[in-house]
Amino acid sequence: MTPLLQVENLHAHYGKSHILQGVAFSVGEGEVLSLLGRNGSGRSTTLKAVMGLVPPSAGSVRLADQELAGAKPNRICRAGLAYVPEEREVFANLTVDENLRMGEQPATPGAPRWTVQQMFDYFPRLKERRHTRAGSLSGGEQQMLTICRSLLGNPRVILIDEPTEGLAPMIVAQVGECIRDMRAQGVSVVLVEQKLAIALKVSDRVCVMGHGRIVFEGVPAQLQSDPALLSRWLAV
């Protein structure tokens, strides 16, 4: 599979702390890749560095034929990358409808087009709350809204950070179904997910991170069949 997103030798610092130490992975078109690891392993920083929210100190981030390492987040977004932060970051004083409209932009070449109606089909609760200010939504509703707002940017690749954190099981199932449909529509997904069972269920491949590096890459079945690897890098 020809990579759509290719990350090579990615380094990033917070002050003098060397957080990412040569991270490398690739994602094909319509593929779901999960970044797994303990808290502090560098997973969220990887997404932020790819998106330009943390300036990489070295390395390459290529989307198709475009080099994006070091570019501003708005340019990266327009190139076809979207980011769903763990903090959700809705526009609290705007309604659900207004938040969704804020996310709309023309599709980049090769990206599928998404509509507000599709978002309401995924998450009927958002349709019920469409005229409610986003700051009044529950955490689960805000997570739905953030995912949908990002999809309406019509990205080729979407980076999703801890989408099921603190959500009820029914909403977790809806989020998982949405991720699977993104893949079916040809959108590539890079997922950071703490819940191992969910990540293994929705992913085509997984990468395990430790100490700012990729320490394992393979299909979910390989990871599940390696108790020593699970114990060393993922057990709490």
Rank of each mutant, 00 (worst) to 15 (best):
G37D: 06
G40Q: 01
S41Y: 13
G42I: 08
R43A: 12
S44D: 09
T45G: 08
T45M: 08
T46A: 12
L47H: 05
L47C: 08
L47T: 10
L47E: 12
A49G: 07
A49F: 03
V50P: 15
V50H: 00
M51C: 08
M51R: 05
L53G: 15
V54C: 11
V54H: 07
P55D: 11
P55L: 06
P55T: 12
P56G: 13
S57F: 05
A58T: 00
G59M: 02
S60A: 15
R62D: 03
R62F: 04
L63K: 09
L63V: 12
A64N: 13
A64I: 02
D65Y: 02
Q66A: 10
L68G: 04
L68E: 06
G70Q: 08
G70R: 12
A71D: 07
K72S: 14
P73K: 04
P73I: 10
N74V: 10
N74W: 13
C77L: 15
C77P: 03
C77I: 14
C77G: 02
R78E: 10
R78W: 01
A79G: 10
A79P: 06
G80V: 00
L81M: 15
A82D: 05
P85S: 11
E86V: 02
V90P: 11
F91D: 09
F91N: 06
F91E: 07
N93T: 12
D97C: 08
E98T: 06
E98K: 12
L100M: 03
M102N: 05
G103V: 03
Q105A: 15
Q105F: 11
A107M: 12
A107K: 07
A107T: 01
T108W: 02
P109N: 06
P109G: 04
G110M: 00
A111S: 13
P112E: 02
R113K: 10
W114S: 00
M119F: 01
M119T: 01
F120R: 04
Y122T: 00
Y122P: 00
Y122L: 08
F123A: 02
F123P: 03
F123R: 04
P124I: 09
R125Y: 02
R125M: 05
R125D: 14
R125L: 13
L126K: 13
E128Y: 03
R130M: 08
R130L: 02
H131A: 13
H131P: 00
T132P: 01
R133L: 10
S136N: 12
S136T: 03
L137D: 09
S138V: 10
S138N: 11
S138W: 08
S138D: 07
G139P: 12
G139D: 04
Q142C: 14
Q142R: 14
Q142V: 11
Q143I: 14
T146D: 04
I147F: 08
C148S: 15
